[in-house]
Computed example of a mutant assay.
Amino acid sequence: MQKAFEAALIDGKSLAASLVERIAGDVAVIKAETGQTPGLAVVLVGEDPASAVYVKSKHRQTEAAGMRSFVHRLPVDTTQDALMSLLDQLNADPAVNGILVQLPLPPHLEAAEVINAINPAKDVDGFHISNAGLLATGQEALVPCTPLGCTMLLKDRLSDLSGLNALVIGKSNIVGKPMAQLLMAENCTVTVAHSRTRNLPELCRTADILVVAVGRPEMVRGDWIKPGATVIDVGINRVEGKGKPRIVGDVAFAEAGHAAAITPVPGGVGPMTIACLLANTVTAFRRQNKPNTTRFAAE
């Protein structure tokens, strides 16, 4: 007889909805106190279907939170110089408080150069080298949205993370590295692993907190997970099967019932990413307008 699935589900949809509600309240305060409206500019180059869906969702949610949304759709053959020229304009535009260039870019464009052309104070993705350095040294920075959302989910579930053993699987600049920095800031004992780590299953079994962001469908098996651990699955993978394709995470969800809690895929980390993008836009506005604004609940 198969053992019942006992792990609690970490509801990213609910927490994201609560955060967006608070952000909308912050925006209303900003408008009342300053007469200004925070603005987010999103740049999409090309016609990648998944990117187009993400941009549409960001536009809709930005406006729903009471902010201004500026969407720039550029053709796939846009040159590096043309894209950099647009970023110069957005950097100089006082109505734009946050700038996001949707990744991935077409292969002829140099992503690192594009990211580092964004004014760090408007870099709401948190990818600019200046924000990465500030985060790494424990200073005030705009933090990448997905790791920020993961940290909020963990703190909502566990409250105090201090002293817990945390394992981050994945070493990307977008998730893995900043995730480790945020966990260290919460006084966790942090290990960063990846697909080439030796004895990865044994290492996983030592983790009170397990954050998985490798982009490999169901790579982490149930018997890798420590009983009572809290599992954050960042992966979103489309797999073919009988009938229509299905979306799965990087963790074999059905095998993880002995965890204390786990994020579902979808419905876990994903909703928090866009909510944190909106929060970063409010944070960017406040920092750009000191001392004329107060600190807001979204930070």
Score class of each variant (00 low, 15 high):
1 M>T: 11
1 M>A: 13
7 A>E: 09
7 A>Q: 10
8 A>E: 11
10 I>M: 15
11 D>W: 06
13 K>W: 03
14 S>P: 00
14 S>R: 12
16 A>K: 10
17 A>V: 04
18 S>R: 13
21 E>L: 10
23 I>P: 13
28 A>W: 02
32 A>R: 15
33 E>N: 11
33 E>Y: 00
39 G>Y: 01
39 G>D: 00
40 L>V: 08
40 L>M: 12
41 A>G: 03
41 A>E: 00
45 V>P: 10
49 P>D: 02
50 A>F: 13
51 S>C: 10
51 S>R: 02
52 A>G: 06
53 V>A: 12
54 Y>L: 03
59 H>P: 00
62 T>E: 05
66 G>M: 09
68 R>K: 13
71 V>K: 00
71 V>G: 06
72 H>A: 06
73 R>S: 14
73 R>V: 12
73 R>K: 14
76 V>A: 15
76 V>H: 13
79 T>M: 06
82 A>R: 15
83 L>G: 07
83 L>S: 09
85 S>M: 07
88 D>Q: 12
88 D>G: 11
90 L>V: 08
97 N>H: 15
101 V>N: 09
108 H>Q: 15
110 E>Y: 07
110 E>S: 08
111 A>P: 04
114 V>S: 03
115 I>S: 07
119 N>T: 03
119 N>P: 02
121 A>S: 13
121 A>R: 13
122 K>M: 13
123 D>Q: 08
124 V>T: 02
128 H>P: 07
129 I>L: 14
129 I>S: 12
132 A>C: 09
137 T>D: 02
138 G>D: 00
138 G>W: 05
138 G>T: 01
139 Q>C: 01
139 Q>N: 09
147 P>C: 03
148 L>M: 14
151 T>A: 12
154 L>V: 02
154 L>Q: 04
157 R>A: 13
165 N>P: 08
165 N>S: 14
168 V>H: 07
170 G>T: 03
172 S>F: 04
172 S>L: 03
180 A>G: 15
182 L>I: 09
183 L>V: 07
185 A>I: 01
187 N>E: 11
192 V>E: 10
194 H>L: 00
198 R>H: 13
199 N>F: 05
201 P>I: 00
202 E>H: 11
203 L>E: 14
208 D>E: 15
209 I>A: 05
209 I>E: 03
210 L>A: 05
213 A>D: 04
214 V>C: 06
215 G>F: 07
219 M>H: 12
220 V>E: 07
221 R>H: 11
226 K>R: 13
228 G>P: 11
228 G>Q: 05
230 T>F: 13
232 I>E: 05
232 I>K: 09
233 D>W: 07
235 G>H: 09
239 V>K: 06
241 G>K: 08
241 G>Y: 07
242 K>L: 05
242 K>G: 08
246 R>K: 15
246 R>L: 01
248 V>I: 10
252 A>N: 03
256 A>P: 13
257 G>L: 01
257 G>I: 01
261 A>C: 08
261 A>L: 07
263 T>L: 11
264 P>F: 08
266 P>D: 00
267 G>M: 01
269 V>M: 06
269 V>N: 06
270 G>T: 02
272 M>Q: 10
273 T>V: 05
274 I>F: 04
275 A>T: 05
276 C>P: 04
281 T>N: 14
282 V>P: 06
284 A>H: 08
286 R>P: 00
287 R>L: 15
289 N>G: 03
293 T>V: 15
294 T>E: 12
295 R>Q: 11
